[in-house]
Design a protein around this nucleic acid. Structure first.
Length: 872
RNA sequence: GGGCGCUUAGCUCAGCGGUAGAGCACCUCGCUUACAACGAGGUGGUCACAGGUUCGAUCCCUGUAGCGCCCA
C-alpha cells in the first residue's frame, strides 16, 4: 500500500473548508432523538445519573441564563452517559401562574378586547391552555436548538394530569398532618395582579418616598407620629409608644381623635416600639402592616381595612374612591390645611416592596389565606445539608442556604388566580371544610375554594412528581434521589429550599445528592441581564449566528463556580473560532490519514510519546474539573491542549514524519487518529454537534450507526516526563530561533542556512529535521558563513548565515533586555540565599529552587554577555 | 442598619505564601494548499490603598476607600 492510498482524501472531502453549524446541528439533533440516544431506561443495571431541568416558565423564552444552566446540565449528563451511567436529563416546564395569566390577559385584551371576567373562569382557562400549547412549542424548539440532550418521552408540565395529582396528594397529606392551615394574616397583596404573594415574590427597592410627621391630639394631649404611608391613618386604631418612654408616660391610657374619621384611638405601650426611631411614637394600622398587626394582636385592637383589592380607598369619608396614592397626597393636603403636619421629608429613600411580576407597589393587607407551616419542613431541609446528605457547591453558598431555611416564615400558598392548581378544599353549606384527595369528590352542595396554589408549590415537588410520584414507579425507584440540581444562586430560596422541604417530607430523602449553584449572567456593566433593561443577548441569535456549540462553549468557558459571568458577543465569536479550528485540525488529520484502526504503536516516536502524555494530563484535568463543577477550568485545559499542543505543535511536528512515509508515518497516523478520537470525546459534552460530526467522519462510525453520545469516556494512560522535558527543550529552541528571525526582520518564508550545535547533548539529535522544518533552517552548504550565533541553552547553539549583515542594534537590544532580566533575577536570588533567616526557615525544596534559579541566571548572564561581546 | 462578595495587563477573568498568567484587544511580519474564523513574533501590571504577621505577602490578618449583591 502506498502512502497516498493511506491518506484519506475521501473522508476529508466530506468536510467543508469552514465549519457550517446550522445544517449539521439540525440533522444531528434529529438523529440523536430518532435513535433514542437521550432516552433513559428505568430497568437497566447501569448506575443512575439523573438531573431534572429547572422548569422554565412555559410562556417564557430561553435567555442566556437558561442557556448556561442547560449547557452545564447537559454537559454533566452527557459525560456521565459516556462514563456508562444510565443518564437522564428530564425536561419540562412550569405553568407560572401569575405571569402566564398576565400574559394571556394582555393578549386577550389586545387581540380580542375582552377581559378574563368577560370570558368567565372556565373559558378563560381554556384560552390559557391554547396559548400554553403555542408557547410550549416555542420553548421546546429553543431547547432543541441549543442541543439539550433531554429524554423527551419523559417531559412534564406542572399542570399535567400526573403532576396535578401529585399536588393534590401533597396538599391533602399536609392538610391531614396539620401542616396546612387557613388564617387571617397580613400578606403581601398586589393590587394589579389582585392576588396574594408570598414574601419572596416581593422585591424590595429603594424608592424616593416621603416621610410625613403628623400630630394626633391637641396641645399637651398631642403626640407626633411619622409615616411613609399617610393614607393608612384612615385605618389607625392606636398610637403606640415604648412602656419606658417617659416622654409619653402621661399620655398612656388617653385617647386621641383620628382626623376625618371621628374615631378615638388609645395611646398604648408596647415594648416592640423603638423609642430611638423618629419621635418614639408610632401609628398602628393593624389591617395594613405586619408589625402593626402584631401590636394589634397583643392589645386586642380592631383591624380596619381601608381599601379594596385594587388599592382604592373604601373608608367612609372625603377620600373614599381615591386610589391609595391619590389619597396619600389628598390626605397630606388636608392635614396640612388643618395644621397637623409637623414635618415633611421628601424625598425620603426607603425600601418599598414591589410585585416580582409586575413591579406594582405591594400593599400589606389583612387577608384570609392558606399557609404552609414551615418550621418542621425547614428544619429537615436544613438538616439534610448539615448532615451531608446533600452537598452544596460551591460551599460558600451554604451560608446563603442556611440563612434562608433557618429564617423562613410560614408560606402563603393561596393565589387569587384562575390559572393553576385549584385548592382542593370544599366548603359545606354549614361552614364545613373538607380536603379532597385525588379521585375523591366533595359531598353534594359543597363549593370549592376559588383560589389556586402558588406555582412554587408544584415546582417544589418537581424532582419526584416528574418521576411518577405519588405512584411508586420504576422511574422513581431508579432515579430518586437525583444526582445534582443545577441552578442559579438567585433561585435558592424560591425553589431549592422548597424542593428540599417537600422532598424530605414526602420521600424521606432529600431530592438530590448535590446542588450546584452557578452564577448569573451579567452584561458588560455588571448588570443582571434581563428583558426589561434591554441588555440581554438572545441565545437563539447566538445559535443562528455562530452555532449552538459556540454558544455552549462560550458559556462553559466562563462558568466559574461562585462567580457571575459577563457575556458579550465577542466571546461567542472566539468560541466559534475554536470550533472552526477544531474542524480544520480534524480535517487535516484526516487528510494525513489519521486512523483509529489497530493498536497504538508499541514504540512511539518522541513526539508521539509527548502528545500522548499531554493527552493523559488533559484527561486528568478535565475529570478533576468536571467533578468539581469547574467548567471554566475544564474548558481551559481542553482549549489549550487542542490549540497549543495539538494544532500548533503536534500537527506541525507530524508533517515531516508523514512526508517521509514508512513505518514511522504509519505509527504517527495511528497516534494522530487516537489523539483526535480522544479529544473529540472530551469535548463532546460541551460541544456535542461539531464533535459528533467530526468523530463519525474520523471513525467511519456513521455506517455502523455509532454515536459519540454513547462512546466511552477517555481514561488517562499515564504521563511521560522524559518526552515532555525533551519536547519542551525542542520548543524552546524553535521559539528562540523564530524570535531571532523575527527580530532580524527575516521573512517567515525565507530559508536560512544554519548549523545547529549541541543537539546530542540535549537529547534532541533525532529531532533535527523537525526543527529545521519548523524554523526553515537549511543545512549548511558550501560557503556557509555564519553571521550570528544564538546560544539557545547551555547545550544548544545555532549559527546562522543570514547572508549579509545582521541588525546589530536589534540583536543588542534584545540581548540587553535578556541580560537585564537575568541580572535582576541573579540579584534577587543572591539576596535570598545570603539571608540567614531564609536559609534557616525556608523549606529545603524552596531553597533548592532558588539555588537552581540563581544558577540559571548566572548561565543566562554568561551567554548573553558572550554574545554581546561577539557583536561588538 | 445587618450580612456576603469583589477590586490583578486597555477589556473579561484565572492564580492565592516562594520567578505575575490566559483569552481578547494592540504592534510587527506573513494568504507557507488544514484553518486569514489563520500562522509566527512582540509590547503591556508599584496584583485598590494603609498597616500587621512571616525569612518571604498578589495570596494570611486588621483597617480604609470604591463597586456589586442579598436581607431588613
Amino acid at each position: 500500500m502506498t502512502d497516498a492510498a493511506k491518506t484519506n482524501p475521501d473522508l476529508a472531502d466530506q468536510l467543508s473548508k469552514t465549519y457550517a453549524p446550522v445544517e449539521v446541528e439540525a440533522r444531528r439533533y434529529a438523529k440523536w432523538v430518532a435513535d433514542g440516544r437521550f432516552a433513559a431506561s428505568d430497568s437497566s443495571d447501569r448506575d443512575p445519573y439523573a438531573i431534572v431541568i429547572p422548569p422554565p416558565n412555559v410562556t417564557g423564552q430561553l435567555h442566556l441564563g437558561h442557556a448556561l444552566d442547560h449547557t452545564i446540565i447537559d454537559s454533566l449528563v452527557r459525560r456521565e452517559r459516556m462514563r456508562g451511567k444510565e443518564a437522564l436529563f428530564l425536561p419540562g416546564t412550569d405553568h407560572a401562574g401569575i405571569s402566564t395569566q398576565n400574559v394571556v390577559e394582555r393578549q386577550l385584551a389586545d387581540k380580542e378586547g375582552v377581559s378574563r371576567h368577560d370570558l368567565g373562569r372556565e373559558a378563560f382557562v381554556d384560552k390559557v391552555w391554547e396559548w400554553k400549547d403555542v408557547y410550549h412549542e416555542r420553548i421546546s424548539n429553543q431547547m432543541k436548538k441549543i442541543g439539550d440532550g433531554v429524554d423527551w418521552s419523559r417531559e412534564r408540565f406542572t399542570l399535567d394530569e400526573g403532576l396535578s395529582s401529585a399536588v393534590q396528594t401533597m396538599f391533602k397529606r399536609m392538610y391531614d398532618d396539620g401542616m396546612i392551615y387557613r388564617a387571617e394574616r397580613i400578606i403581601n397583596w398586589c393590587p394589579r395582579c389582585m392576588t396574594a404573594l408570598s414574601d419572596i415574590e416581593v422585591e424590595h427597592q429603594d424608592d424616593a418616598g416621603e416621610l410625613v410627621s403628623m400630630r394626633y391630639g391637641e396641645g399637651e394631649h398631642s403626640i407626633v407620629v411619622a409615616t411613609t404611608r399617610l393614607e393608612t391613618m384612615l385605618g389607625d386604631t392606636a398610637v403606640a409608644v415604648h412602656p419606658d418612654d417617659e416622654r409619653y408616660a402621661h399620655l398612656l391610657g388617653t385617647t386621641v381623635e383620628v382626623p376625618f374619621t371621628g374615631r378615638r384611638i388609645p395611646i398604648i405601650a408596647d415594648a416592640h416600639v423603638d423609642p430611638e426611631f423618629g419621635t418614639g411614637a408610632v401609628k398602628v394600622t393593624p389591617a395594613h402592616d405586619p408589625n402593626d398587626f402584631a401590636i394589634g394582636q397583643r392589645h386586642d385592637l380592631e383591624a380596619i381595612l381601608i381599601m379594596d383589592e385594587r388599592g382604592v380607598i373604601t373608608a367612609h369619608g372625603p377620600f373614599q374612591g381615591l386610589d391609595r396614592f391619590e389619597a396619600r397626597s389628598a390626605i397630606a393636603a388636608a392635614l396640612r390645611a388643618g395644621g397637623r403636619i409637623v414635618a415633611e421629608k421628601r424625598p425620603y429613600m426607603h425600601a418599598v416592596g414591589h410585585c416580582d411580576r409586575c413591579d406594582t407597589t405591594v400593599e400589606p393587607r389583612l387577608s384570609k389565606q392558606w399557609f404552609v407551616k414551615v418550621e418542621r419542613l425547614a428544619k429537615s431541609a436544613g438538616d439534610a445539608v448539615r448532615n451531608g446528605e446533600t452537598k452544596i457547591h460551591p460551599p460558600e453558598m451554604e451560608k446563603r442556604y442556611f440563612s434562608w431555611v433557618d429564617n423562613l416564615l410560614d408560606w402563603c400558598i393561596s393565589r387569587q388566580l384562575w390559572w393553576g392548581h385549584r385548592i382542593p378544599i370544599w366548603y359545606g353549606p354549614n361552614g364545613e371544610e373538607i380536603c379532597v384527595g385525588p379521585g375523591e369528590s366533595a359531598p353534594e352542595g359543597y363549593t370549592q375554594d376559588p383560589d389556586v396554589l402558588d406555582t412554587w408549590f408544584s415546582s417544589g415537588l418537581w424532582p419526584f412528581s416528574t418521576l411518577g410520584w405519588p405512584e411508586q414507579t420504576p422511574a422513581l425507584e431508579k432515579f430518586y434521589p437525583t444526582a445534582t440540581l443545577v441552578t442559579g444562586w438567585d433561585i435558592i430560596f424560591f425553589w431549592v429550599v422548597r424542593m428540599m422541604m417537600f422532598g424530605t417530607y414526602a420521600m424521606g430523602k432529600a431530592p438530590f445528592k448535590e446542588v450546584f449553584l452557578h452564577g448569573l449572567i451579567r452584561d458588560k456593566e455588571g448588570k443582571k441581564m434581563s428583558k426589561s433593561s434591554g441588555n440581554g443577548i438572545d441565545p437563539l441569535e447566538v445559535v443562528d449566528q455562530y452555532g449552538a456549540d459556540a454558544l455552549r462553549f462560550m458559556l462553559a468557558r466562563d462558568a466559574q463556580p461562585g462567580a457571575d459571568s459577563t457575556a458579550s458577543i465577542e466571546l461567542a465569536e472566539i468560541s466559534r473560532n475554536f470550533c472552526n479550528k477544531l474542524w480544520n485540525g480534524t480535517r487535516f488529520a484526516l487528510m494525513s490519514g489519521a486512523t483509529v484502526e489497530g493498536e497504538l504503536p508499541a514504540e512511539p516516536s518522541l513526539i508521539d510519546r509527548w502528545i500522548l502524555s499531554r493527552l493523559s494530563h488533559t484527561i486528568e484535568a478535565v475529570d478533576t474539573h468536571f467533578e468539581a463543577y469547574e467548567f471554566a477550568k475544564a474548558m481551559d485545559a481542553l482549549y489549550h491542549f487542542a490549540w497549543d499542543d495539538v494544532f500548533d505543535w503536534y500537527l506541525e511536528l507530524t508533517k515531516p514524519v508523514l512526508a517521509e512515509g514508512g513505518q514511522a508515518a504509519d505509527d504517527t497516523r495511528r497516534v494522530l487518529g487516537h489523539v483526535f478520537d480522544q479529544l473529540l470525546r472530551l469535548l463532546h459534552p460541551v460541544i456535542p454537534f461539531v464533535t459528533e460530526e467530526l468523530w463519525l467522519t474520523l471513525t467511519g462510525g456513521e455506517e455502523r450507526n455509532e454515536s459519540l453520545t454513547v462512546a466511552v469516556w477517555p481514561t488517562p494512560a499515564g504521563a511521560d516526563d522524559e518526552a515532555e522535558r525533551l519536547v519542551d527543550a525542542l520548543q524552546h529552541l524553535v521559539v528562540e530561533v523564530r524570535r531571532f528571525r523575527s527580530d532580524q526582520g527575516v521573512k517567515p518564508s525565507q530559508r536560512v542556512a544554519a548549523r545547529i550545535g549541541g543537539l546530542d547533548a540535549a537529547g534532541l539529535a533525532d529531532q533535527e529535521r523537525f526543527i529545521r522544518v519548523l524554523v526553515k533552517l537549511d543545512v549548511e552548504a558550501e560557503g556557509f558563513a555564519p553571521t550570528a550565533e544564538l546560544a539557545v541553552s547551555d547545550q544548544v547553539s545555532v549559527a546562522l548565515d543570514t547572508s549579509g549583515t545582521i541588525d546589530v542594534a536589534a540583536e543588542r537590544a534584545r540581548l540587553d533586555k535578556a541580560l537585564k532580566a537575568a541580572e535582576k533575577e541573579l540579584a534577587g536570588t543572591t539576596a535570598k540565599l545570603g539571608n540567614e533567616a531564609f536559609l534557616a526557615k525556608a523549606p529545603d525544596n524552596v531553597v533548592e529552587k532558588i539555588r537552581a534559579r540563581k544558577a540559571t541566571a548566572e548561565a543566562d548572564i554568561a551567554r548573553a554577555t558572550a554574545q554581546l561581546e561577539r557583536l561588538a
